[in-house]
Structure formats: structure tokens, C-alpha cells
Computed example of a mutant assay.
Amino acid sequence: MDFRIFTEPQNGASYTDQLELAQAAEKLGFEGYFRSDHYLTMDDRNGGMPGPTDSWTTLAGLARETSTIRLGTLVSSATFRHPGILAIQVAQVDDMSGGRIELGLGTGWFEKEHTAYGIPFPAKRFGMLEEQLDVITGIWGTNPGKTFSYEGKHYQLSQSPALPKPVQNPLPIIIGGSGPSRTPALTAKFAAEYNAGFATIAPLKERIDRVRAACEHFDRDPATLVLSIAGTTAVGATEAQIDTRATAANSTPDALRHGGFAGTASEVVDKISELKALGFTRVYFQVMDFHDLDQLDFLAREVIPQLD
């Protein structure tokens, strides 16, 4: 299995906060540092100060100030950017990182942040997402010297030079969600990785079965798809540490034991082992306190070595 750190900077984190956490994660041997793509906090305890940071601007900076850790979004919203622009941004940041970028892409769901920043929020967005995937992969997959055109309901491109290209070919795309049919189909067609959401065990087998069935429908080997899971994290050697970290995540230890990664090292190892038995090979530890580097150290020293 491999292990990544996942953050929610919209709740209150500067670029410097994110850089320090990403560099600490890299030093401790985590495989990736990923961030959400939001412009408004859902946690009003501090008002989201100092304000939002743009995900791809941030990742561009991190690309130049890290050297080995993989970087990306979980996930970018299809409502925030035109797919042609996003294809350029992601390809450029991949070049800046030396080929360490992954693109998580979804429909977007948080209407309030769209209203706050004047971003259109259509009632129906899944068609936009599907066309964005068509456009982005079409641009990246067009041979050098050729052009790319596309005629869709939401997006039209004519004779695009389809540049620049990412360093990686193909650049990994992550799709997640719990939809019963359209999400599995898009995953099978476009994704290197399916993220099943947060670590509540009960619904996961059904979600995995649907995605694997979609792969088979499109004549794709399900084994070529990485299965990943995320979970808000509050771990520690004592119950006091666990409680403090759960509080920082605006939750409780009991809630996170059920739907995240919380408790002692042995408790978290047992839960991840259960997920591994279901077929998951990648874990995103959602860390809510950017300044609690001791929790990353605890995960790296006490949890991950037991799962190698």
C-alpha cells in the first residue's frame, strides 16, 4: 500500500502552511501530498482565515519546492475552469514538478462558494464533467504537430494546437464518488484511480463492485485501476492526543473511528488492513491541523511500518 496526506486549505491555511506540511510529508516518506479545490470554508470556527488559496497556483509553487512527493487535487471542480485552460495548467505544473502531478476531477458541489465568488453553478454538472474529461485527455493525447477539435454541448474547440503536453504520458486522473452508473463508467474510461470517498466500511464493497463491472463492460482489466480511500485522521499514543486531534478536525474520536482513521496505531492498522482486504492499495490521511507535524511523524513511525 502507499500513503498520502490530504488537506483542506480553505479552512484556513496560507501557502507557507501548506509548504511546511508538504515538505514534512516528503521528508517522512509519504508518497503524496494532495489538497482539496475549494474557495470557501465549510468550518466557520475561524472564518477560513487567511482566506482561500487556489489549488493549481499552490501546486505550482509546491512543484518547485519539493522533489519527490507526488502532488495533486482531490478533487478539482469542473465548474472552476474551462477544460482547455485546465489542460494547460496541469501540463505546465507537471513539467514544473518533473512529472509528479495527478489530476483529481469532479462535478463540484458546494453552491455557496460559487455564489460567494461569482462562479456559475449549473443545476446539472455531470455532462460538463464528462466533456471536460473528453477535452483534457483529447488535448494531451493529440500527437505533436496535429490539432484537436471538439464539438460538445458545453465546450467547443476548433483546431487547438493541443499544447503543452504533460511530462507523464498518460498523466494520472483520479475520479471519485458514489454514483451508481455514470461515475463508474467515467472511471473505467478515463481514470487511473478510483477514490471511494471516506473510510466508512459498509458501502465500499458495492461501490468497488460497480466500478469493476464498468471496467469489464469497457473491456478494461479492473486490476489496472488503483482503488483508494480517504479518511479524516486523529491518531495518537494516548486518548488525550486522539481527542485533541479529533477536536481539531471538528469531530469526535468515536465518529472518526467509524468514518475515518482514528485511535491508537493498532486501531488504525486494523482498519487499514480491513480496507486492504477489500482491494484498496492507497490511503489518503486527511490532516486538518497544518501545524500538527507530530501526527505525521506518528503515522510514519507507528502506523505505516506495520502495513508494509
Rank of each mutant, 00 (worst) to 15 (best):
N46Y: 13
N46G: 10
N46A: 13
G47W: 05
G47H: 08
G48R: 02
G48I: 04
M49S: 14
P50M: 10
G51C: 12
G51A: 12
G51Y: 07
P52K: 03
T53I: 15
T53C: 13
T53M: 13
T53W: 05
D54F: 10
D54Y: 12
S55G: 11
S55T: 15
S55R: 06
W56S: 01
W56D: 02
W56G: 07
W56V: 04
W56K: 06
T57G: 13
T57L: 15
T57N: 14
T57F: 11
T57V: 15
T58H: 07
T58S: 14
L59R: 04
L59Q: 01
L59N: 06
L59K: 06
A60N: 12
L62A: 03
L62M: 07
A63E: 06
A63C: 10
E65Y: 01
T66E: 00
T66P: 08
T66D: 06
T66W: 00
S67W: 03
T68Y: 05
T68H: 00
I69V: 14
I69C: 09
R70P: 08
R70Q: 15
R70T: 14
R70N: 14
L71H: 09
G72Q: 03
G72T: 08
T73L: 09
L74Q: 01
L74T: 06
V75E: 00
S76E: 02
S77T: 10
A78L: 03
A78W: 05
F80Y: 15
F80V: 02
R81S: 08
H82Q: 15
H82V: 09
G84L: 07
G84H: 00
I85G: 11
I85A: 14
I85L: 15
L86S: 04
L86P: 01
A87W: 04
A87C: 13
A87G: 11
I88C: 07
I88W: 04
I88V: 15
V90G: 04
A91N: 02
A91F: 07
A91R: 00
A91D: 08
A91I: 03
A91K: 05
A91S: 13
Q92H: 15
Q92G: 12
V93E: 01
D94Q: 07
D94F: 02
D94Y: 03
D95T: 11
D95W: 01
D95F: 05
S97I: 02
S97F: 01
S97W: 04
G98H: 02
G98C: 11
G98N: 09
